[in-house]
Design a protein around this nucleic acid. Structure first.
Length: 152
DNA sequence: GCCAACGTTGGC
DNA sequence: GCCAACGTTGGC
């Protein structure tokens, strides 16, 4: 079964344009346990909405697909990386992630404002007050509606 | 730039 | 286990 997710990135760090250029990427650097637990649940074939955060306006800009799951995030062992985690050991790595590939850029961004108008807080974790998760599930019903308006 | 909301850390 | 202090996220 295909599951749907939403993943945030600040476009000045890594944007959908970067992903389009590269084709695929490892989604490294997530250091939040709740977000990691969602990453662990992802399966190849799952679809992920790409969300640009910390920009004006923020919103969903495209779609990507999981091609490899349960990938060890190498940056946790790299002492030069900002994501280095000295507590993590090779025998049982603390941080897993996925490799995603580019699917499409939406003709028009679906802004956070639009998402707030389309859905209720209970339907979409993204718009829940105070939410700061960078990786989160999206219900199929909600995902279908987002995909539908993305075609227009 | 501001600040609310949240997660993490560490003293006790 | 509690909780204050701190750092970060991210919309505005």
């Amino acid at each position: 079964m295909t599951n749907y997710w939403l993943m945030k990135s600040e476009p000045n760090v890594y944007s959908i344009t970067d992903l389009k250029k590269e084709g695929k990427t490892i989604w490294d650097g997530v250091r939040n346990y709740q977000a990691r637990n969602f990453l662990r649940q992802m399966q190849p074939g799952d679809l992920c909405f790409f969300y640009h955060s910390n920009v004006t306006p923020p919103g969903i800009v495209g779609l990507m697909q999981v091609v490899e799951s349960d990938v060890i995030d190498p940056t946790q062992f790299d002492s030069q990386s900002p994501y280095y985690d000295a507590q993590s050991c090779l025998e049982s790595p603390r941080w897993q992630t996925v490799i995603v590939e580019f699917v499409k850029v939406f003709p028009e961004m679906i802004s956070l404002t639009t998402l707030k108008q389309m859905f209720h807080q209970e339907e979409l974790l993204l718009i829940r007050r105070g939410n700061r998760l960078s990786v989160m599930p999206v219900a199929k019903k909600v995902a279908d509606q987002i995909l539908q308006i993305a075609q227009q």
